[in-house]
């Protein structure tokens, strides 16, 4: 077991930690999630049927519509949000939702974040510095 420090752009939200759930797919709260059950519900998504609550979600880019800005706050209010979001590229909606819901978010890493972290890794996220510390499983 060893720790790996990955550097991203300065993020949004408080420090967080959790187990990583990783895919090379993209992310939209409205298009991809059953937010009541806390699972990915879009059949074409690589994380279909997998639970995301409390996980550090590691995905490629933010896609889709604007609803995610409200939905992160709504999911957090019910304790059904991911612990943090790590993306190669966020879009404004994810950033606005992270600011409103205080859900930790970092993007723009040194490399492809979906290949630097594996599902099951323990991850610490510090948006104030853009640092991600990975304890590899």
């Amino acid at each position: 077991m060893r720790d790996l420090i990955i550097k991203g752009h300065l993020g949004i939200g408080p420090k967080a930690s959790g187990e990583a759930l990783v895919a090379t797919d993209n992310f939209s709260a409205r298009y991809d999630l059953d937010r009541i059950k806390g699972i990915f519900s879009r059949p074409a998504h690589k994380l279909f049927k997998q639970g995301y609550v409390g996980k550090v979600l590691v995905l490629n880019i933010a896609k889709g519509g604007v609803a995610t800005a409200w939905m992160l706050h709504e999911m957090a209010s019910r304790g059904m949000a991911p612990a943090a979001l790590l993306l190669n590229f966020a879009n404004p909606i994810i950033a606005q939702g992270a600011a409103f819901g205080q859900v930790p978010l970092i993007d723009r890493f040194d490399g492809d974040i979906t290949t630097m972290i594996k599902t099951g890794d323990q991850v610490e996220v510090n948006p104030a510095t853009g640092d991600v510390i990975v304890t590899q499983s």
Partner: peptide, 26 residues
């Protein structure tokens, strides 16, 4: 987050806020 230098005045705002997205908390 997006390295904006300053603000820009806007002429209109358009709010997406259906209750499915808002939920009780929104």
């Amino acid at each position: 987050f997006f390295d904006a230098v300053d603000f820009v005045p806007v002429a209109q705002a358009h709010i997406m806020a259906d209750t499915e997205s808002l939920g009780e908390s929104g």
